[in-house]
Computed example of a mutant assay.
Amino acid sequence: MAEREGGREGRDRSPAGATASRPRGFRLDQPRPPRRRVLPEWDPEAFGRLSEKIARFLGTGRFIVWMTVVIIVWVVWNIAAPDVVRFDSYPFIFLTLMLSLQASYAAPLILLAQNRQDDRDRVNLEQDRKQNERSIADTEYLTREIAALRAGLGEVATRDWIRSELQDLVRELELERRQDGAGRPGQYAFPAERANRPPGRDADDR
């Protein structure tokens, strides 16, 4: 009896202990609140589309023309302008820094755009492969159906075959009736002599 009471007390204490170990305000029937993040969040798709636009612009002749014009104006301004308004004298260290910064950002953007293009190409190739498999399966199915139809048509009576059989049967009947007409009077050949047959019923037609 004591063991039973001890076990019951242990079972009664276990849920309380489990409940006590949970933090206050924790409920299983509600979603957990979002955690605060130190780093800023961004949409990967939006960032990827922006990187593709920048990469496409970097690969055009317009960007090369604009960059050439900016560099020429930069160099001419810092050479021909008065010393007071110059902001990057020779050897143009600030220009070199800007070009290096541009290259350091352009390379990852181009790689990101290439990765997105590779993912799209992979998806397109997978879809093309599945479409080719379905086309091959449909072609094989149609080939089997056509072969079955050809095999079935070999056993089906065609119109020409039925016509030839009927013609042979008519010839045989005409020959038999002519032979019967030659042995027994009152019989007529079939079908030419039957057309000249007088009206009325014969004894043989009964």
Rank of each mutant, 00 (worst) to 15 (best):
Q117H: 04
R163M: 02
Q167A: 11
T19H: 05
D43V: 04
V38H: 07
A151I: 01
L99Q: 09
R163Q: 01
G181K: 07
A20S: 09
D83S: 13
S104D: 10
W74A: 00
S104N: 07
A113I: 03
F26W: 10
L50I: 06
Q131F: 05
D29G: 07
A147C: 00
G7P: 04
A157D: 14
L169K: 08
Q117G: 03
E176L: 13
G59Y: 09
L173C: 13
I64N: 04
T60M: 11
D43Q: 11
R159T: 06
I54N: 06
V156M: 08
T68I: 03
K53V: 08
Q127M: 08
L95C: 08
D88T: 01
P34I: 05
L142C: 00
A189S: 07
R177L: 15
A195P: 03
G10D: 15
Q127L: 05
P82V: 07
I136G: 09
E172K: 12
R22K: 13
D29P: 06
A16I: 13
A20G: 08
L153W: 02
L166C: 01
V123C: 08
A148Q: 00
D128Y: 06
L97K: 03
M1Y: 11
Q30N: 10
E165W: 04
A157R: 13
G17M: 12
A182E: 07
S89N: 08
E9M: 09
P33F: 02
L173W: 07
G200Q: 11
E145F: 00
V123I: 13
S104L: 12
M67Q: 04
L112T: 13
A151N: 06
V123L: 11
T68R: 01
R37I: 10
R177G: 12
R194C: 15
I79K: 00
V75N: 00
W42Q: 08
R35L: 05
G61R: 07
W42D: 05
D121G: 02
I64R: 08
P23H: 03
L95F: 09
A157Y: 15
L58G: 03
D180H: 03
P82H: 09
E5A: 10
R49S: 07
R35A: 11
G61E: 09
R206E: 14
G183A: 10
R120N: 13
W161Y: 08
